[in-house]
């Protein structure tokens, strides 16, 4: 909406200003345990904003992973469970098949989804389960102290690749979105990032579309979100979001990969 630029004095104009941004209703007003500058907090909020806007809070069931985001259920204001490591897609399958009218989504990190949970995510996607998967790719295991993840990029130093990830010894970073896009059961895959305001808005748009697909019974949707982990990238939050721009995006290009 265009703001007519009345000659406003330094304090506010006579018209009371409206609150345009605040805590979503689907989010609990509690301090989160995440490290300073961690992307999980942003992504949690975006999901809750989408759930508010789609008015599905009372129909939504979230499945939290094992990892930093295991405590997501303390921050979400809707029914939530927590699956064993790597198994949220299987748990979500069980829920969705029993409650097809409910909106079911999994929230998983790269260790949960791309390492121990690879079989579950591939087969859940391949069955075209009508669920939404939020895949947070921060290129390390955070909860356990910064080990290499399947998405750690080549040369990246971690607790378990102290001299940098080496392809011969540690294999190559896993491109989950491109891999899943090949499966017929998958209707929508997009990779976004939360490293700047523009990308945060694009991430929200992608999340909303992924939830809408589910509401419209279109099938399996996944949003991969590049997210900063300042603590285990050994950087400041500001450097971390820059590193996404300069390094991560080179290997994990942003954009719609399918649908």
């Amino acid at each position: 909406m265009k703001i007519t630029n009345k000659t406003s004095s330094t304090n506010q104009t006579s018209k009371a200003l409206r609150k345009v941004f605040s805590l979503p209703a689907s989010m609990r007003d509690v301090a989160m345990h995440y490290c300073s500058g961690c992307g999980h907090g942003i992504i949690h909020r975006l999901i809750c904003e989408v759930i508010d806007e789609l008015e599905i809070r009372e129909k939504t069931i979230g499945v939290a992973p094992v990892g930093c985001a295991v405590l997501a259920y303390d921050y979400w204001n809707f029914d939530t469970t927590e699956a064993s490591h790597g198994r949220p897609p299987a748990v979500a399958t069980g829920i969705k098949r029993i409650l097809p009218e409910r909106i079911v989504f999994t929230y998983q990190g790269d260790g949960d989804l791309a390492a121990i949970g690879t079989a579950e995510i591939i087969h859940t996607a391949n069955r075209g389960e009508n669920i939404t998967v939020i895949f947070v790719n921060n290129a390390v295991y955070g909860m356990t102290g910064g080990q290499m993840a399947p998405t750690t990029i080549l040369g990246q130093k971690t607790e378990t690749t102290p001299w940098g990830r080496d392809a011969q010894r540690d294999g190559f970073p896993l491109k989950i979105s491109e891999m899943l896009a090949l499966l017929s059961g998958v209707v929508y895959v997009e990779r976004t990032a939360v490293n700047n305001a523009k990308n945060v808005l694009l991430t929200k748009k992608a999340i909303k579309k992924a939830f809408l697909n589910q509401i419209e019974n279109k099938g399996f949707s996944l949003v991969e979100i590049l997210s900063p982990c300042p603590t285990y990238w050994r950087m400041s939050p500001v450097e971390a979001v820059k590193w996404i721009e300069t390094e991560m995006v080179k290997y994990y290009p942003l954009g719609v990969i399918k649908g």
Binding site: I3, S8, T10, L17, R18, K19, V20, F21, S22, L23, M27, A31, M32, Y34, S36, G37, C38, G39, H40, G41, I42, R45, V194, N196, A197, V200, L201
Partner: peptide
Amino acid sequence: NNSECTGCAFCALMCPDVCIEVYK
């Protein structure tokens, strides 16, 4: 706090801990 703030909410979008409310 001065007149330059346009209420774009970039700050609030980027805040990982939902510390910022924007009034416009």
